[in-house]
Amino acid sequence: MTGGFRSLHPLAAALYFSGLVLFVMWLVHPAYLLAAGGCLLLLHLQLDGGAALGKAWKGYLAMGALVALANPLVSTRGATILGYLGNRPVTLESCVYGLLFGLTLSVMLLGFGAARQVITLDRFLYLTGTGLPRTAFVIVMVLRLVPLLKRRLREIAAAAKTQGRLGGGKRTARIREAMELLNTLVVWTLEESLHMAVAMRASGYGSGPRSTFAAYRMEGRDKGVLVLLGGLALPILAGSLWGRGQMVFYPLLSGLELHLPHYGAFLFWCALPILMNIGETLQWQIIKSKT
């Protein structure tokens, strides 16, 4: 799918994901976390059929599990003691907090995974370029340089191998050989970069202030989404400041009160990309059925 949420202006997409991560970190509450996690899973399915998730889900789960296990072992806070490990108390409160904190982490990773698919390299560079044009320029040059260096290193290694080097032997000899090859790579690259500097000057680099190509235009739909996000962020933030959607863990667990309007606003935030994608698909269905 290339339309829908994915085609949103990078600025709106960045705002959306930053908001999501902020809320998830703040609102440590099972209902909120499960809602966010569920929506993100659905979004992953919509974006690439879950291909990226298929590779990464084990890592996400492992990170969450690690934190969930580590917290009760490290933290001894909480009033309800379940038992002792050595002479350290293990409390119910730190177990529950660990569990929810682990869940938070997994959901955040899910969010980053989706963000990486929506905010592609081009979009990321556009975002960086509007605020930090020099940084974005350097990143692009490095991206260009890395495959070039890799190819040169392969050629150097091939030359060395056919000259009977890199064949093993003593450790000190191997290290010396590797250093020599790196030296060749550096000298070679310096040599080529002199040529590149001339070519850059030839195309006017350094003859005045640079501009940056802005590949993305803010359209009506993007502005609408921005207004909507603003309209949702206000009540969510205000409610959160009031303590909505947050559990108290220490010294004693609080209940799982749910303030429905606040929860509803948050749920809408989480589901927005899915709804946009569904809307896009429906629109296509309608266009198709009309023809």
């Binding site: 692009v140 040059m141 590149m196 070519a199 005045g208 501009s211």
Partner: peptide
């Protein structure tokens, strides 16, 4: 290779024009 500074084709196409603002 020595004349290509940018990472993708369209970025390189813009390079000279960006230099001149």
């Amino acid at each position: 290779d020595n004349q290509i500074v940018m990472h993708t084709v369209w970025q390189q196409l813009c390079f000279g024009m960006e230099n001149l603002g």
